[in-house]
Design a protein around this nucleic acid. Sequence first.
DNA 1: CTGACTGCAAACGTTTTGCACGGTA
DNA 2: TACCGTGCAAAACGTTTGCAGTCAG
Lengths: 133, 133
Amino acid sequence: MKDFTNTLREHNLKATPQRLEIINAIYEYGHISIDKLYEEVKNKFSSISLATIYKNINAMIENLLLEEVKLPNEKSVYEIIKDKHSHLLCTKCNNIVDVDIALNTISKEISEKLNFTVQQSDLVLSGICKDCK
Amino acid sequence: MKDFTNTLREHNLKATPQRLEIINAIYEYGHISIDKLYEEVKNKFSSISLATIYKNINAMIENLLLEEVKLPNEKSVYEIIKDKHSHLLCTKCNNIVDVDIALNTISKEISEKLNFTVQQSDLVLSGICKDCK
DNA sequence: CTGACTGCAAACGTTTTGCACGGTA
DNA sequence: TACCGTGCAAAACGTTTGCAGTCAG
């Protein structure tokens, strides 16, 4: 189990046992929904409250440690902030994987043609993953 | 005011006055949130209920007349289903415009490299539009 | 030791449901 | 006329808040 104590402190968050469990679960899953996270953390911290999950998710988002990923036809999932990337969502097994897709060319084109400055791009490609075929 | 009577019937929905007003408002706005839609339709149908708005949005989504557009840091908006396209979201004025971005090349690449069959792609580019600069 | 965090319960906002009535086809 | 749709009120759901007790730094 990876130790996120310093990561949390660097983001101005105290490293409580509950919080370490939460961030670790998110890390291990890669992408996780609130419900799954609650279920998962409850295994090790049976007394944890859903309110604590929400408070922590929000605190970590505010402190730029986590971000929400909105998905078509699905509940949002949360992931640790890392380099820009897109998501592949398998509509059969619901698995999500990160992919590095170059959107710079597209952003540049939009900037030039429409005079719209792109600051952020969110791309989700939905379909069937190789394991589900 | 465009007449959506036949469009509704073709999607197995009765053309009630409320429904015509709802679909027309969505059409005129291009992209609209539930709240704005309720507010807008209430101007012409002061007796309309929020429940009716929800029931209709859901019915039209189920009958493939509408689709939800999930946006980063914003409430979802709804639009009439049309040809595949992406969205530009201005984070200053909150305006949304459709853009035709070719994602086929990307989808093909993903298919070949990762053996993932892309069926749908959702792209939102957020930034500053030309009017807000 | 102090401010931040936890867990509980209550509150809140959003969306859905049940039902009686009314309107479309 | 039969069924679908509307509007109201209540219920359900997901998320946030307030507070008292606890813990990390």
